[in-house]
């Protein structure tokens, strides 16, 4: 201790010098914007790269949450998109007394996460984490970020199963976008990337890469939801219809978020139609 004091005393000028300079640099960095940014940026190179690396790691931890947020946001956007557009339903099924310029909410989009799925069987299903408690019912349409996915098959309190397009019994009303001819989309069970569009008469010209979308003639889907692109066309001998191989836009193997389409007027239409048939 005594030695330390002696040492300090001997070099007191030097220590005072250091003290004052440190104080000066404190002042410089605190009161001069340019010098502060210079100081911080040069000393910040290291910290910035460390922080970058850190966020590169920690970003992954929040991916689940961010996905949920994005899905929620997407459902809002889908809502706007399909309810604003003059959907086919307004002309085909809507009652005439309604002003056609009125934008009425026709569809609700409920985001859900896939918790289980199969793609390699003949009857492929998804299981999603929304159910009756969230307003889901059987026969509601399901779409993914890239297009149509399937229909709700069964619901429980908080979960539902979805019959995908990759299902032997699946049958969805689809149209060729450029000429509005409609047919039904089925799956032959062979390849998870292709489905088949039937019932297009042979006098209709179909070309490779024509777009196939939902027709809007069913209760399940709004019109114009992407299904896929025409991949190949052939004609079974003796048939008057094309058989069209459609490359699906949804890759079922990699999909993990979907939106359930709740068609608000469905019950009304069903009652109306059943009454008409029973007459």
């Amino acid at each position: 201790m005594r030695n330390l004091l002696l040492f300090l005393n001997r070099y007191n000028a030097f220590f005072l010098f250091l003290l004052l300079e440190v104080f000066c640099f404190y002042l410089i960095v605190n009161y001069n914007h340019f010098q502060r940014t210079q100081f911080l940026s040069s000393s910040g190179v290291l910290s910035a790269s460390v922080l970058n690396a850190k966020s590169g790691v920690t970003d992954y931890f929040s991916l689940g949450k961010q996905n949920e947020q994005l899905a929620a946001q997407n459902s809002v956007l889908l809502d706007k998109l399909y309810n604003k557009e003059k959907v086919r339903y307004i002309y085909t099924a809507d009652t005439t007394e309604r002003d056609s310029s009125e934008v009425r909410k026709l569809y609700d989009f409920i985001p859900a996460k896939i918790i289980n799925k199969s793609t390699l069987k003949l009857h492929n299903y998804l299981t999603i984490n929304k159910g009756e408690n969230q307003g889901l019912k059987p026969q509601m349409g399901v779409m993914g970020p890239n297009g149509a996915v399937g229909l709700i098959q069964k619901t429980s309190k908080n979960y539902s199963t979805v019959m995908t397009l990759l299902h032997k019994e699946s049958r969805i009303s689809a149209i060729l976008k450029n000429n509005n001819h409609f047919g039904s989309l089925t799956w032959d069970g062979r390849n998870e990337f292709y489905a088949q569009l039937n019932d297009i008469p042979t006098n209709i010209k179909v070309a490779k890469n024509d777009t196939v979308v939902t027709s809007g003639f069913s209760d399940f889907f709004p019109a114009n939801i992407m299904i896929g692109l025409v991949d190949s066309i052939w004609r079974e001998p003796g048939s008057n219809f094309h058989t069209i191989n459609v490359e699906l836009s949804t890759i079922f193997r990699s999909i993990d978020h979907v939106y359930i389409i709740d068609f608000i007027d469905r019950e009304e239409i069903e009652i109306l139609e059943s009454e008409t048939i029973n007459e």
């Binding site: 010098f17 004052l20 300079e21 000066c24 410089i28 605190n30 001069n32």
Partner: peptide, 19 residues
């Protein structure tokens, strides 16, 4: 520094000079 609005510049340099 106070007059030149450069707080610390001249103080640091002049302490250095005195040293």
């Amino acid at each position: 520094d106070v007059y030149a609005n450069t707080i610390g510049f001249h103080a640091a340099a002049t302490v250095w000079l005195a040293f």
